[in-house]
Design a protein around this nucleic acid. Structure first.
Lengths: 367, 367
DNA sequence: ACTTAGCACTCTCCGGCAGAGAGTGCTAAG
DNA sequence: CTTAGCACTCTCTGCCGGAGAGTGCTAAGT
């Protein structure tokens, strides 16, 4: 990791990255000298650039064009050259305020996080819902809808609620339903999916010691619900700021030397990436497993279709309870310092908001 | 409405629309004669086309280009020339099957309807969640999360459930919560938003006859929830099939005489329309209020930004209980017969699915 | 009065070409 | 090691010209 680059080369690399990120046009030696009033000449810069290119930190689209950082160049920038900043206090306050206004509504937090990230980093954002590391059952309510139909409301620790309409084999009155719900609630309280499944298996052995047929049917349904929930939530990626990203010059045909055709194709592929989650999906577990902000530049870690995009991810959640991932995706030419600060701030904010709900949820409540 | 067009002109208009919809290129007199083996010559067709142009049914981008239908042309086509078709039985069966597989999960119906519409019409789809014409309260459950926090689960007629975490002014035990929830459930059962508000007002007068301070606080929260729900759901438009729409030739720079720049700009604006709902929003109430399938061609009824798009909408739901709107949006050059069939079929399907849940939900349940 | 052959006219779509401009790479001198 | 100078490369733009596609119109035919 020891940078085998002279001071000056690092400096020039830094300038090139910053310039290119700011202007989206290849940066020329002459321009650098003029803009930053360098003490050495453009010819020197050219020599240094040639060296940096040799080392793989930047390229050259054709002879008479300026330099553009490579993935390795960005990587070095992020790793060694960039100063670590934070969002301004005013910005932080504003964001906190927005979250305050939707307090209590977890779904809204997710949406809000997505919106704020996108607006702040001017790129698309990704948020996965917080996933209970172990979904734990809390209670079941059964509500009659009409003669042969009921709504099952399953409540899990941490305020996760799932509902399912449910057709009854034969008409049952409200007391029946209430009684069954209570029995199941008692039996399952605090259990995880695998424990529920164990219980089901045991009950099947000693056939109907505990539960009526109807109740077993319900139990089964609960287990299935928990299972699909755990599967579903893992894949589900909420995304926002598509337009924000598509406003980047990468998607302006004018500024792109490969006019028309390509730009549209690029847009289409960007949409596909966001919609399908291919290329992003594999990064999620990895981000869940690590601490701090992850930066994946270009195709570094993932599919070829991601070659032109960078992803910045961070885990958020409460240790031992729930965790999700949020972050930003955009062209590799991205304002890394700002994007990283945004992801860092929002993830810690979401974590502390979740902590408020989850703290104490391991106890049995207030009884 | 009486078409003041000769048989032959109608026939030619019909061919022009069909050709243009199929090929996305302006249709030439010569080509029509060849392709459809017309009994009259291309010169005749040219004369007729000139007349149709005079009457406003088609245009001409420049002298030496084929004809393109105008909005009026499409309108005439939809109104008088198109034969009313249905989706094939095989297609219907397949769609019904997919809905069967997610029975019980209303959220999934909405998503599925969107996906199916988009795939069937090769354009973007719109679905608003079914909105209770009058949201009617059913019951409230309070679930302790920890000392000073509870989850309120409000159940409304028709299986609509809303949850809200709720911070308590002072610690209360589970029995407390249960009692309060029961009292509120009793008081509010079957009431609509305005009735709940009325109750609140009355209670404020005779200060605390019925309810404790805590309970009044809860009532307040319920009312607010109902209100935001009614507001929110009205605006919320679920959309799918963006990529489907963007695969239309309108978004291929090659086939578009105004290369590059414009195509990208068009894509961007399409995204904006779908995301913001501007241009579509105003059409929803109108569709809710009418029966059958609505076809809005180009800017006919709405903003200028919709000039290049047509929208096909239909109401779905259960009379007197809930209603939503679903439909398709795409370039005016659209396969109207097929799109209309798709919207008609899905809307009636959704209606009958909802009817199964809602029938009988006006009674007090099974007690 | 309607239809149609014939033809001039218009407009688009390429491909090629030339000149301007931007930047680099290299060389030779400081 | 730095830098001035200059040739060289590549892009970009506008322009021209020919080919092709279709129409509009006219005049002749039915």
């Amino acid at each position: 990791m020891a940078p085998n680059l002279t001071e000056r080369r690092q400096f020039i690399l830094k300038l090139v990255v910053q310039e290119f990120v700011a202007t989206a046009t290849p940066v020329a030696s002459e321009a650098l000298v003029r803009k930053y009033r360098l003490t050495f000449s453009s010819a020197t810069v050219r020599n240094e650039m040639a060296a940096l290119e040799e080392l793989g930190y930047m390229t050259h689209l054709h002879t008479s064009a300026g330099r553009v950082p490579t993935d390795t160049g960005y990587r070095f920038f992020v790793e060694n050259l960039m100063e670590r900043t934070n969002l301004s206090l005013a910005e932080q306050r504003m964001i906190r305020h927005q979250f305050y206004q939707v307090r209590g509504e977890l779904d809204q937090w997710i949406q809000l996080a997505g919106a704020v990230l996108a607006r702040t980093a001017h790129n698309a954002s990704l948020v996965t819902p917080p996933r209970a590391e172990l979904l734990r059952f809390k209670s079941l309510e059964l509500i009659a809808i009409h003669e042969t139909m009921a709504l099952a409301v399953m409540v899990f620790h941490g305020g996760i609620v799932k509902q399912q309409t449910f057709s009854l084999d034969l008409a049952r009155n409200a007391d029946d339903l209430r009684r069954s719900a209570a029995r199941i609630t008692d039996a399952l309280t605090d259990l995880t999916l695998s424990q529920v499944e164990g219980l089901l298996a045991r009950d099947a052995d000693h056939a109907a010691i505990h539960f009526s047929e109807f109740e077993r049917h319900l139990l089964d349904s609960v287990a299935r619900s928990m299972q699909t929930f755990e599967e579903q939530v893992q894949e589900q990626i909420y995304s926002d700021g598509l337009l924000e990203m598509l406003s980047q010059p990468e998607f302006l045909p004018t500024l792109n030397r490969d006019d028309a055709e390509r730009t549209v194709e690029r847009m289409r592929r960007a949409l596909e990436i966001l919609k399908s989650g291919r290329g992003i999906g594999p990064l999620i577990p990895q981000a869940l497993a690590s601490d701090g902000v992850q930066v994946i530049i270009g195709g570094e870690n993932s599919a070829d279709e991601m070659r032109e995009y960078s992803v910045i991810l961070a885990r958020y959640g409460v240790d031992g309870a729930v965790a999700g991932v949020l972050g930003i995706i955009g062209p590799t030419r991205m304002a890394y310092p700002r994007s990283i600060s945004a992801v860092r701030y929002i993830s810690t904010l979401m974590s502390s908001l979740l902590a408020e709900i989850y703290k104490g949820s391991d106890q049995r409540g207030i009884e």
